[in-house]
Design a protein around this nucleic acid. Structure first.
Lengths: 249, 249
DNA sequence: GTACATAGTTGATATGGATCAAATCGGACG
DNA sequence: CGTCCGATTTGATCCATATCAACTATGTAC
């Protein structure tokens, strides 16, 4: 491993968005090459969290949003009663904490689902920078509106779709997100437990489990634990659209 | 009415955020008095829509977001199959279209629920302005994150709460939004049809109707058509919290 | 004022998924 | 290698809400 150590050891924590393999997914994608330094100046890179550790906690003062570098994160909100609602899963290249920007406190809790490394963007500096770089500001608006749309899609899924449709949609969403990272779209391992899937999709764990085995029996997927193989993507897509088809044939 | 006509008749469409009674709810609240002119310069004020008319349509090019001046608006997304999902209701002082800022096209359709007047903010000019006014930019981030949080709350409501809890939550939300506008918190008329409520909350119309009459029989509300009176706000609040209480007494 | 259409209510029945219960798997750790 | 504890699966039963059906109220056009 010795040869992997970079020459510039003087500033090991200095971010290097330039070399990051995720720069085409993450914030840098919005920025001109020569403005990238300004983003690097405000990023704190390379913080590592072990499975189960909190990146930030609901109701604590908002400081930063985070880009996932490797690993994965789940966010959830906790009601007064202690009930948990998983609001999202975040994979490399995705930004966590947008739901609280501009607020005093974090609106949710972010937890590492596995060993995860993140890049931290202090919000005060980020806002300052977006004020100077219109493309970056535009991209932030875009990311945030995307987040709203995602959440609306989730609400739709929850209010109108069956258990099978919800799970098919989740599998396809994960699939396309793996694909964006040039990984297999049909062969991946779920970063989250069945419990988290159930909570996120508004189902009981038992139902999630049953649907997985039903899909398996139908030859649509193969699943052993968290390892999943999508055997028939078209069938999955059909499941997610079945609902809308039935109503308007 | 003659005496109500302003002196400066030369520019009747010139916005006057300065005088607007909603300025403490709407975008102006984020801006210093002396920067307000710059906001007024980009606003197009006073467009009127009749009940049922579309303010904008899903999948058409994104141009502007809108502040409700009077009346009310519902937003919804339509699936490929033609199925509708109501994603929100917007009342005076609230901003519509944040879910698409930074996108090419509108992500939803906005429809006037009654005769409604709006102020239009062309997005290119708005982005330009937020680049110059940090407080305004901050406020935009805040509004958008608020929208994400709202949607997460909705998702939670849909995935974890009973019909009664959902409807109680909606009534309380409307109540507090009327109150912000210095209107009665207990006596108001619903801007939307039962159908829209049902769709928004992921219920059947029949269920909504039944819950309304159940609440009425319990003496919690009085409802005749769209006219609603909240007789026992605490009872309503209790209903929304009942769920969380049961799980963690 | 009458008629038709749309919105809302009420009743009867069916069902998808929750819940309860129990068995099995899997991985961390001594 | 065996033990233990949480995660997952499987089975049996129940219930909240959807669905189907019919009726009533409201409002709008003529």
């Amino acid at each position: 491993m010795a040869q992997a150590i970079p020459f510039r050891q003087a500033s090991p924590l200095k971010a290097s968005c330039h070399q990051c393999s995720l720069s085409n997914l993450c914030l840098p994608l919005a920025i001109e090459e020569n403005d990238l330094d300004r983003l690097e100046d405000i990023v704190q890179q390379g913080r590592i969290f072990n499975r189960g550790e909190h990146i930030f906690d609901q109701s604590t003062p908002y400081r930063s949003c985070f880009a996932v570098k490797s690993g994965s994160i789940k966010t959830s909100i906790i009601t007064e009663g202690g009930e948990e609602q998983v609001t999202g899963f975040f994979m490399p290249g995705e930004l966590v904490g947008l739901d609280s920007i501009g607020s005093e406190n974090y609106a949710c809790t972010a937890k590492a689902l596995e060993r995860t490394s993140v890049c931290e963007f202090p919000v005060d500096k980020l806002e300052e920078l977006t004020g100077k770089l219109p493309e970056l500001q535009h991209h932030m608006y875009h990311l945030m509106s995307q987040e709203i749309q995602n959440s609306h899609q989730l609400a739709m899924l929850l209010s109108k779709n069956t258990a099978e449709e919800r799970i098919a949609a989740l599998l396809l969403s994960l699939s396309s997100r793996f694909q964006r990272r040039r990984m297999s779209a049909t062969n991946f391992s779920l970063p989250m437990a069945r419990n988290d899937i159930a909570n996120f999709l508004g189902l009981a764990v038992e139902t999630v489990s049953r649907v997985f085995t039903r899909f398996q029996n139908q030859g649509i997927i193969k699943a052993r634990g968290r390892e999943v193989e999508l055997l028939d993507v078209e069938a999955l897509q059909l499941v997610t659209r079945e609902f809308s088809r039935q109503s308007h044939p």
